[in-house]
Write a protein that binds this DNA or RNA. Structure first.
Ligand SMILES: [Zn+2]
Ligand SMILES: [Zn+2]
Ligand SMILES: [Zn+2]
Ligand SMILES: [Zn+2]
Lengths: 168, 168
DNA sequence: GAGTTGACGTTATAATATAACACCCGATTT
DNA sequence: AAATCGGGTGTTATATTATAACGTCAACTC
Protein backbone atom coordinates (compact mmCIF):
# COMPACT_ATOMS: atom_id res chain seq x y z
CA UNK A 1 0.00 0.00 0.00
CA UNK A 2 2.75 2.41 -0.77
CA UNK A 3 2.14 4.30 -3.98
CA UNK A 4 -0.85 6.60 -4.16
CA UNK A 5 0.39 8.42 -7.25
CA UNK A 6 0.54 5.56 -9.70
CA UNK A 7 -2.76 3.95 -8.92
CA UNK A 8 -3.81 1.89 -11.97
CA UNK A 9 -2.12 3.16 -15.08
CA UNK A 10 -3.44 0.87 -17.77
CA UNK A 11 -5.16 -1.99 -16.05
CA UNK A 12 -7.40 -2.56 -19.03
CA UNK A 13 -5.33 -2.38 -22.15
CA UNK A 14 -7.02 -2.49 -25.51
CA UNK A 15 -10.70 -1.74 -25.60
CA UNK A 16 -12.81 1.27 -26.08
CA UNK A 17 -10.86 3.16 -23.50
CA UNK A 18 -9.65 6.65 -22.85
CA UNK A 19 -6.30 6.33 -24.47
CA UNK A 20 -5.40 9.94 -23.79
CA UNK A 21 -5.41 8.91 -20.18
CA UNK A 22 -3.04 6.01 -20.88
CA UNK A 23 -0.68 8.42 -22.54
CA UNK A 24 -0.80 11.14 -19.95
CA UNK A 25 -0.44 8.66 -17.11
CA UNK A 26 2.52 6.97 -18.77
CA UNK A 27 4.28 10.24 -19.53
CA UNK A 28 3.49 11.66 -16.12
CA UNK A 29 4.86 8.59 -14.39
CA UNK A 30 7.95 8.63 -16.57
CA UNK A 31 8.66 12.27 -15.81
CA UNK A 32 8.17 11.67 -12.14
CA UNK A 33 10.38 8.60 -12.00
CA UNK A 34 13.18 10.29 -13.90
CA UNK A 35 13.18 13.25 -11.54
CA UNK A 36 13.22 10.95 -8.53
CA UNK A 37 16.04 8.92 -10.00
CA UNK A 38 18.07 11.92 -11.09
CA UNK A 39 18.15 10.85 -14.72
CA UNK A 40 17.27 12.99 -17.71
CA UNK A 41 14.13 12.45 -19.69
CA UNK A 42 15.48 14.62 -22.49
CA UNK A 43 13.28 15.91 -25.31
CA UNK A 44 14.34 13.10 -27.63
CA UNK A 45 13.67 10.45 -25.01
CA UNK A 46 10.34 12.02 -24.17
CA UNK A 47 9.33 12.16 -27.80
CA UNK A 48 10.27 8.53 -28.37
CA UNK A 49 8.28 7.49 -25.33
CA UNK A 50 5.35 9.51 -26.58
CA UNK A 51 5.55 7.93 -30.03
CA UNK A 52 5.64 4.47 -28.49
CA UNK A 53 2.55 5.29 -26.51
CA UNK A 54 0.58 6.37 -29.56
CA UNK A 55 -0.98 2.94 -29.38
CA UNK A 56 -0.80 -0.30 -27.49
CA UNK A 57 0.93 -1.94 -30.40
CA UNK A 58 4.59 -2.79 -30.38
CA UNK A 59 6.57 -0.39 -32.55
CA UNK A 60 9.69 -1.06 -34.60
CA UNK A 61 12.79 1.05 -34.11
CA UNK A 62 12.90 2.25 -37.71
CA UNK A 63 9.22 3.10 -37.59
CA UNK A 64 10.02 5.35 -34.64
CA UNK A 65 12.89 6.80 -36.60
CA UNK A 66 10.58 7.74 -39.45
CA UNK A 67 8.05 9.18 -37.10
CA UNK A 68 10.49 11.25 -35.09
CA UNK A 69 12.17 12.84 -38.12
CA UNK A 70 9.64 15.67 -38.45
CA UNK A 71 10.52 16.62 -34.88
CA UNK A 72 14.21 15.75 -34.94
CA UNK A 73 15.44 16.12 -38.46
CA UNK A 74 18.92 14.96 -37.45
CA UNK A 75 17.63 11.66 -36.15
CA UNK A 76 19.61 8.58 -37.14
CA UNK A 77 19.34 4.94 -36.03
CA UNK A 78 21.63 5.64 -33.09
CA UNK A 79 19.31 8.41 -31.95
CA UNK A 80 16.47 5.97 -31.59
CA UNK A 81 18.42 3.06 -30.21
CA UNK A 82 20.00 5.26 -27.57
CA UNK A 83 16.62 6.54 -26.48
CA UNK A 84 15.24 3.01 -26.45
CA UNK A 85 18.16 1.79 -24.35
CA UNK A 86 17.48 4.51 -21.84
CA UNK A 87 13.76 3.84 -21.68
CA UNK A 88 14.34 0.13 -21.22
CA UNK A 89 16.93 0.71 -18.49
CA UNK A 90 14.44 2.90 -16.69
CA UNK A 91 11.70 0.31 -17.06
CA UNK A 92 9.51 2.67 -19.05
CA UNK A 93 9.16 0.40 -22.06
CA UNK A 94 9.54 -3.27 -22.86
CA UNK A 95 11.41 -4.79 -25.71
CA UNK A 96 9.26 -7.46 -27.34
CA UNK A 97 11.90 -9.98 -28.27
CA UNK A 98 9.78 -12.06 -30.58
CA UNK A 99 8.86 -9.02 -32.66
CA UNK A 100 12.03 -6.93 -32.46
CA UNK A 101 9.78 -4.15 -31.33
CA UNK A 102 8.98 -1.99 -28.35
CA UNK A 103 5.90 -1.28 -26.30
CA UNK A 104 5.12 1.09 -23.44
CA UNK A 105 5.25 -0.45 -19.99
CA UNK A 106 1.95 -0.08 -18.26
CA UNK A 107 3.37 -0.66 -14.81
CA UNK A 108 6.50 1.46 -14.79
CA UNK A 109 8.02 1.61 -11.38
CA UNK A 110 6.03 -1.38 -10.21
CA UNK A 111 6.72 -5.03 -10.62
CA UNK A 112 8.22 -5.79 -13.97
CA UNK A 113 8.74 -8.72 -16.23
CA UNK A 114 5.17 -9.52 -16.67
CA UNK A 115 3.44 -11.63 -19.23
CA UNK A 116 2.99 -10.09 -22.64
CA UNK A 117 -0.08 -11.17 -24.56
CA UNK A 118 0.45 -10.28 -28.19
CA UNK A 119 -2.51 -10.30 -30.54
CA UNK A 120 -1.78 -11.54 -34.05
CA UNK A 121 -4.87 -9.81 -35.32
CA UNK A 122 -4.91 -6.29 -33.89
CA UNK A 123 -1.25 -6.40 -32.86
CA UNK A 124 -1.92 -4.90 -29.48
CA UNK A 125 0.14 -6.04 -26.52
CA UNK A 126 -1.37 -6.58 -23.15
CA UNK A 127 0.78 -6.77 -20.06
CA UNK A 128 -0.37 -8.91 -17.17
CA UNK A 129 1.18 -9.46 -13.75
CA UNK A 130 0.04 -13.11 -13.68
CA UNK A 131 1.19 -13.66 -10.14
CA UNK A 132 0.24 -17.34 -10.13
CA UNK A 133 2.43 -17.89 -13.16
CA UNK A 134 5.29 -15.97 -11.62
CA UNK A 135 5.07 -18.00 -8.45
CA UNK A 136 5.11 -21.24 -10.37
CA UNK A 137 8.10 -19.93 -12.29
CA UNK A 138 9.98 -19.11 -9.09
CA UNK A 139 9.45 -22.64 -7.86
CA UNK A 140 10.68 -23.97 -11.16
CA UNK A 141 13.85 -21.89 -10.90
CA UNK A 142 14.45 -23.05 -7.37
CA UNK A 143 14.09 -26.65 -8.49
CA UNK A 144 16.44 -26.10 -11.36
CA UNK A 145 18.94 -24.19 -9.24
CA UNK A 146 18.75 -21.40 -11.79
CA UNK A 147 19.42 -17.79 -10.80
CA UNK A 148 17.21 -15.47 -12.81
CA UNK A 149 18.40 -12.19 -14.22
CA UNK A 150 15.56 -11.44 -16.58
CA UNK A 151 12.48 -12.99 -18.11
CA UNK A 152 10.84 -12.70 -21.50
CA UNK A 153 7.41 -14.28 -21.50
CA UNK A 154 5.71 -13.57 -24.77
CA UNK A 155 2.48 -15.23 -25.79
CA UNK A 156 1.15 -14.92 -29.32
CA UNK A 157 -2.47 -15.47 -30.16
CA UNK A 158 -5.80 -13.71 -30.43
CA UNK A 159 -6.92 -11.22 -27.82
CA UNK A 160 -10.31 -11.24 -26.22
CA UNK A 161 -11.48 -8.28 -28.25
CA UNK A 162 -10.59 -9.90 -31.56
CA UNK A 163 -12.03 -13.24 -30.48
CA UNK A 164 -15.31 -11.45 -29.84
CA UNK A 165 -15.15 -10.11 -33.38
CA UNK A 166 -14.71 -13.64 -34.66
CA UNK A 167 -11.18 -13.16 -35.93
CA UNK A 168 -9.11 -16.21 -35.25
CA UNK B 1 19.17 -49.58 -28.38
CA UNK B 2 18.60 -50.63 -24.84
CA UNK B 3 15.84 -48.12 -24.15
CA UNK B 4 12.45 -47.43 -25.70
CA UNK B 5 12.82 -45.11 -28.65
CA UNK B 6 12.23 -41.66 -27.18
CA UNK B 7 12.73 -42.50 -23.55
CA UNK B 8 14.60 -39.56 -22.08
CA UNK B 9 16.31 -37.65 -24.83
CA UNK B 10 18.10 -34.98 -22.87
CA UNK B 11 16.49 -34.88 -19.49
CA UNK B 12 19.67 -33.52 -17.99
CA UNK B 13 21.02 -30.86 -20.25
CA UNK B 14 24.39 -29.39 -19.52
CA UNK B 15 26.63 -31.36 -17.21
CA UNK B 16 29.28 -33.94 -17.64
CA UNK B 17 27.04 -36.03 -19.79
CA UNK B 18 27.29 -38.31 -22.78
CA UNK B 19 26.70 -35.73 -25.43
CA UNK B 20 27.14 -38.23 -28.21
CA UNK B 21 23.99 -39.77 -26.92
CA UNK B 22 22.16 -36.44 -27.03
CA UNK B 23 23.18 -36.07 -30.64
CA UNK B 24 22.34 -39.56 -31.77
CA UNK B 25 19.01 -39.51 -29.97
CA UNK B 26 18.09 -36.16 -31.47
CA UNK B 27 19.07 -37.18 -34.98
CA UNK B 28 17.43 -40.56 -34.66
CA UNK B 29 14.21 -39.03 -33.45
CA UNK B 30 14.30 -36.46 -36.22
CA UNK B 31 14.80 -39.09 -38.90
CA UNK B 32 12.02 -41.17 -37.48
CA UNK B 33 9.57 -38.29 -37.22
CA UNK B 34 10.25 -37.12 -40.74
CA UNK B 35 9.62 -40.57 -42.16
CA UNK B 36 6.40 -40.89 -40.20
CA UNK B 37 5.26 -37.48 -41.33
CA UNK B 38 6.25 -37.99 -44.94
CA UNK B 39 8.56 -34.98 -45.01
CA UNK B 40 12.12 -34.90 -46.23
CA UNK B 41 15.03 -34.60 -43.88
CA UNK B 42 17.35 -33.78 -46.75
CA UNK B 43 21.14 -33.80 -46.42
CA UNK B 44 21.24 -30.05 -45.89
CA UNK B 45 18.54 -30.16 -43.24
CA UNK B 46 20.22 -33.08 -41.55
CA UNK B 47 23.56 -31.32 -41.53
CA UNK B 48 22.08 -28.14 -40.10
CA UNK B 49 20.37 -30.12 -37.38
CA UNK B 50 23.62 -31.89 -36.64
CA UNK B 51 25.51 -28.61 -36.44
CA UNK B 52 22.93 -27.19 -34.06
CA UNK B 53 23.31 -30.23 -31.87
CA UNK B 54 27.06 -29.84 -31.60
CA UNK B 55 26.36 -28.26 -28.24
CA UNK B 56 23.52 -27.20 -26.00
CA UNK B 57 24.22 -23.59 -26.83
CA UNK B 58 21.99 -21.55 -29.07
CA UNK B 59 23.62 -21.02 -32.47
CA UNK B 60 23.31 -18.05 -34.80
CA UNK B 61 22.20 -18.53 -38.38
CA UNK B 62 25.36 -17.07 -39.89
CA UNK B 63 27.48 -19.20 -37.60
CA UNK B 64 25.72 -22.22 -39.06
CA UNK B 65 26.33 -20.83 -42.51
CA UNK B 66 30.06 -20.61 -41.86
CA UNK B 67 30.11 -24.07 -40.41
CA UNK B 68 28.18 -25.72 -43.20
CA UNK B 69 30.25 -24.24 -46.01
CA UNK B 70 32.92 -26.95 -45.91
CA UNK B 71 30.13 -29.45 -46.52
CA UNK B 72 27.93 -27.38 -48.80
CA UNK B 73 30.13 -24.94 -50.61
CA UNK B 74 27.13 -23.38 -52.35
CA UNK B 75 25.48 -22.48 -49.06
CA UNK B 76 24.00 -18.99 -48.83
CA UNK B 77 21.85 -17.34 -46.15
CA UNK B 78 18.71 -18.70 -47.79
CA UNK B 79 20.14 -22.21 -47.55
CA UNK B 80 20.35 -21.93 -43.79
CA UNK B 81 17.14 -20.04 -43.22
CA UNK B 82 15.17 -22.51 -45.28
CA UNK B 83 16.60 -25.41 -43.33
CA UNK B 84 15.89 -23.62 -40.07
CA UNK B 85 12.31 -22.92 -41.12
CA UNK B 86 11.81 -26.58 -41.86
CA UNK B 87 13.33 -27.73 -38.60
CA UNK B 88 11.21 -25.29 -36.63
CA UNK B 89 8.04 -26.33 -38.44
CA UNK B 90 8.80 -29.92 -37.60
CA UNK B 91 9.46 -29.05 -33.97
CA UNK B 92 13.03 -30.29 -34.15
CA UNK B 93 14.60 -27.03 -33.02
CA UNK B 94 13.56 -23.92 -31.17
CA UNK B 95 14.17 -20.37 -32.17
CA UNK B 96 15.43 -18.44 -29.16
CA UNK B 97 13.78 -15.10 -29.75
CA UNK B 98 15.78 -13.14 -27.27
CA UNK B 99 19.06 -14.25 -28.84
CA UNK B 100 18.13 -14.49 -32.51
CA UNK B 101 19.53 -17.97 -32.34
CA UNK B 102 18.55 -21.60 -32.54
CA UNK B 103 18.83 -24.58 -30.27
CA UNK B 104 17.99 -28.24 -30.61
CA UNK B 105 14.68 -29.32 -29.15
CA UNK B 106 15.20 -31.97 -26.54
CA UNK B 107 11.62 -33.15 -26.63
CA UNK B 108 10.85 -33.34 -30.32
CA UNK B 109 7.55 -34.96 -30.98
CA UNK B 110 6.47 -34.48 -27.40
CA UNK B 111 4.96 -31.48 -25.74
CA UNK B 112 6.42 -28.28 -27.00
CA UNK B 113 6.75 -24.69 -25.98
CA UNK B 114 8.54 -25.34 -22.83
CA UNK B 115 10.53 -23.03 -20.66
CA UNK B 116 13.98 -22.11 -21.90
CA UNK B 117 16.58 -21.43 -19.23
CA UNK B 118 19.44 -19.56 -20.86
CA UNK B 119 22.73 -19.26 -19.02
CA UNK B 120 24.53 -15.96 -19.44
CA UNK B 121 27.76 -17.56 -18.40
CA UNK B 122 28.11 -20.83 -20.31
CA UNK B 123 25.41 -19.93 -22.86
CA UNK B 124 23.78 -23.32 -22.65
CA UNK B 125 20.02 -23.56 -22.97
CA UNK B 126 18.00 -25.90 -20.86
CA UNK B 127 14.48 -26.82 -21.82
CA UNK B 128 12.01 -27.64 -19.09
CA UNK B 129 8.39 -28.79 -19.29
CA UNK B 130 7.46 -26.87 -16.15
CA UNK B 131 3.96 -28.25 -16.04
CA UNK B 132 2.97 -26.16 -13.03
CA UNK B 133 3.93 -23.02 -14.91
CA UNK B 134 2.07 -24.12 -17.99
CA UNK B 135 -1.05 -24.83 -15.98
CA UNK B 136 -0.91 -21.43 -14.34
CA UNK B 137 -0.46 -19.92 -17.78
CA UNK B 138 -3.51 -21.71 -19.13
CA UNK B 139 -5.58 -20.31 -16.32
CA UNK B 140 -4.24 -16.88 -17.02
CA UNK B 141 -5.22 -17.16 -20.68
CA UNK B 142 -8.69 -18.34 -19.77
CA UNK B 143 -9.09 -15.39 -17.46
CA UNK B 144 -7.88 -13.01 -20.11
CA UNK B 145 -10.00 -14.63 -22.81
CA UNK B 146 -6.85 -14.97 -24.87
CA UNK B 147 -6.48 -17.75 -27.45
CA UNK B 148 -2.90 -18.94 -27.59
CA UNK B 149 -1.12 -19.77 -30.80
CA UNK B 150 2.44 -19.94 -29.54
CA UNK B 151 4.54 -19.18 -26.49
CA UNK B 152 8.06 -17.93 -26.04
CA UNK B 153 9.19 -18.23 -22.45
CA UNK B 154 12.83 -17.35 -22.17
CA UNK B 155 14.59 -16.91 -18.88
CA UNK B 156 18.06 -15.47 -18.70
CA UNK B 157 20.34 -16.02 -15.75
CA UNK B 158 22.95 -18.38 -14.38
CA UNK B 159 22.53 -22.11 -14.61
CA UNK B 160 23.04 -24.46 -11.73
CA UNK B 161 26.37 -25.65 -13.05
CA UNK B 162 27.79 -22.15 -13.32
CA UNK B 163 26.35 -21.18 -9.95
CA UNK B 164 28.25 -24.10 -8.46
CA UNK B 165 31.40 -22.76 -10.04
CA UNK B 166 30.78 -19.42 -8.40
CA UNK B 167 30.07 -17.53 -11.60
CA UNK B 168 27.22 -15.13 -11.04
C1' DG C 1 4.74 -35.85 -71.92
C1' DA C 2 2.66 -31.66 -69.93
C1' DG C 3 1.76 -29.98 -65.49
C1' DT C 4 2.66 -29.73 -60.63
C1' DT C 5 5.32 -29.73 -56.54
C1' DG C 6 9.17 -29.37 -53.40
C1' DA C 7 13.96 -28.49 -52.72
C1' DC C 8 17.66 -25.88 -53.79
C1' DG C 9 20.82 -22.27 -56.34
C1' DT C 10 21.61 -17.51 -56.98
C1' DT C 11 21.40 -12.57 -56.74
C1' DA C 12 19.96 -8.79 -54.59
C1' DT C 13 18.21 -6.17 -50.96
C1' DA C 14 15.60 -5.25 -46.71
C1' DA C 15 15.48 -4.78 -41.83
C1' DT C 16 17.68 -4.57 -37.47
C1' DA C 17 21.51 -3.00 -34.63
C1' DT C 18 26.11 -1.33 -33.12
C1' DA C 19 30.89 0.82 -33.30
C1' DA C 20 33.64 4.63 -33.28
C1' DC C 21 34.70 9.20 -32.92
C1' DA C 22 33.61 14.15 -32.64
C1' DC C 23 31.25 17.95 -30.54
C1' DC C 24 28.63 20.54 -27.19
C1' DC C 25 27.36 22.02 -22.87
C1' DG C 26 26.80 22.43 -18.14
C1' DA C 27 28.81 21.17 -13.62
C1' DT C 28 32.97 20.61 -10.80
C1' DT C 29 37.49 21.48 -9.79
C1' DT C 30 41.66 24.17 -9.62
C1' DA D 1 38.69 32.20 -15.37
C1' DA D 2 40.80 27.90 -17.16
C1' DA D 3 40.86 23.22 -17.07
C1' DT D 4 38.48 19.03 -16.57
C1' DC D 5 34.86 15.78 -16.82
C1' DG D 6 30.64 13.35 -18.04
C1' DG D 7 26.34 12.84 -20.29
C1' DG D 8 23.87 13.50 -24.33
C1' DT D 9 23.87 13.99 -29.02
C1' DG D 10 25.59 14.31 -34.12
C1' DT D 11 27.63 11.78 -37.73
C1' DT D 12 29.60 8.22 -40.56
C1' DA D 13 30.30 3.74 -41.32
C1' DT D 14 29.52 -0.96 -40.82
C1' DA D 15 27.89 -5.32 -38.75
C1' DT D 16 24.24 -8.56 -38.17
C1' DT D 17 19.99 -10.75 -39.19
C1' DA D 18 16.54 -11.99 -42.58
C1' DT D 19 13.74 -12.11 -46.84
C1' DA D 20 12.30 -11.43 -51.80
C1' DA D 21 12.36 -12.87 -56.27
C1' DC D 22 13.34 -15.75 -59.84
C1' DG D 23 15.53 -19.79 -62.07
C1' DT D 24 16.65 -24.79 -62.29
C1' DC D 25 16.09 -29.51 -61.58
C1' DA D 26 14.19 -33.88 -60.34
C1' DA D 27 10.28 -36.59 -58.89
C1' DC D 28 5.68 -37.54 -59.05
C1' DT D 29 0.96 -37.34 -61.31
C1' DC D 30 -2.51 -37.32 -64.59
ZN1 LIG E 1 -4.69 3.11 -24.09
ZN1 LIG F 1 -6.57 -8.36 -31.01
ZN1 LIG G 1 24.24 -33.15 -24.61
ZN1 LIG H 1 25.93 -21.90 -17.24
Amino acid sequence: MNTPVEASPTALPPSEHDHQKCVSTALGTAEHLCVVRGVQLTPIRHQVLELIWESHKAVKAYELLDRIKPLQSAAKPATIYRALDFLIEQGLIHRVESLNAFVGCSSSGHQHEQLLLICKHCHEVEERPATAVMQALSQEFDQAGFIVHSKAIEIHGICVKCVALGDD
